[in-house]
């Protein structure tokens, strides 16, 4: 384990410059460049807002802003986009870099770290844009937003842990990658982002309550829309889930490391 951290430390410059390159690469040769990082999720918010605001808008108790539903959507989307991006990119990370892994010796753990760094950067930009939108619609952020300093790392850790586990499995069983595309979509709808948990019927709600992303998303909604602190036990539950995921991922990674190149 110590060796792992040492390798990461030695390659820190490489990881940092790779994150930069990764962001640079994604929007190379597009006119709007990095703006797309923000525009895509915001466009999605706009679509949901247009389609669903009539149905959902009236169901947000305790809010006064007429754009409350938009704010609700954005808060959930900020949480979800970090999760979805990290998981879906970690999923194919080893498969995509197969050639590199076969030919060059470097700490393989740097690959998920690069993905995490890049996803985190674009998420922070999205967050900035979100605050901009809030100000535009007359919703002043409160100090409760400071909770994001805990919520984002927890979200990140959970996403990387899950992504890494799936990424390792995907090397050996490629079906994982295919299935996860569908699962992620289903997961999105199983998380109260475009709707409120209050509209769910009872038995369905107990299912949703097992979903760690539910607590993350509602945490974001609490601090960004309602201006209240998220329930500590919920954050704690996800934090524990995240640590378990990460530990499992690292354990699997250490076992699989040797066999991975065999099948790539």
């Amino acid at each position: 384990m110590q060796k792992l951290f040492k390798a990461v430390w030695m390659y820190r410059h490489f990881i940092a410059s790779s994150i930069r390159n990764d962001l640079r690469m994604r929007f190379a040769r597009s006119k709007l460049g990095g703006l797309w990082m923000i525009l895509q999720p915001l466009a999605q918010v706009a679509i949901y807002a247009v389609v669903l605001s009539r149905v959902m808008g009236s169901r947000l108790p305790g809010t006064t802003n007429e754009y409350a539903y938009v704010i609700y959507l954005i808060a959930g989307m900020v949480a979800w986009s970090l999760f979805a991006e990290t998981v879906s990119r970690c999923l194919t990370i080893f498969v995509d870099n197969g050639n590199l892994l076969k030919k060059i010796v470097f700490p393989r753990i740097s690959l998920p770290l690069i993905v995490a760094g890049s996803a985190l950067t674009s998420n922070l930009l999205l967050l900035l844009a979100a605050v901009g939108v809030f100000l535009l619609v007359g919703h002043a952020p409160t100090w409760q937003m400071a909770w994001l300093l805990i919520l984002i790392p927890v979200n990140m850790a959970f996403s990387v842990g899950l992504g890494l586990i799936l990424g390792i499995l995907n090397v050996f069983v490629r079906d994982v990658g295919q299935v996860m595309v569908v699962v992620l979509q289903l997961w999105f709808w199983m998380t109260p982002i475009v709707y409120m948990p209050s509209i769910l019927p009872g038995p369905f709600r107990t299912v949703i309550e097992c979903n760690p992303m539910y607590y993350i998303a509602s945490g974001f909604q609490d601090v960004m829309l309602y201006g209240t602190a998220p329930p500590l036990e919920n954050v704690g539950y996800v934090a524990v889930a995240a640590v378990v995921m990460l530990a499992l991922a690292l354990a699997m990674f250490r076992r699989a490391n040797a066999e991975m190149v065999d099948v790539l």
Binding site: M10, F14, S17, L100
Partner: peptide, 8 residues
């Protein structure tokens, strides 16, 4: 820079 970084 990238490849040399990869080489350590």
């Amino acid at each position: 820079y990238h490849s040399a970084g990869l080489m350590g």
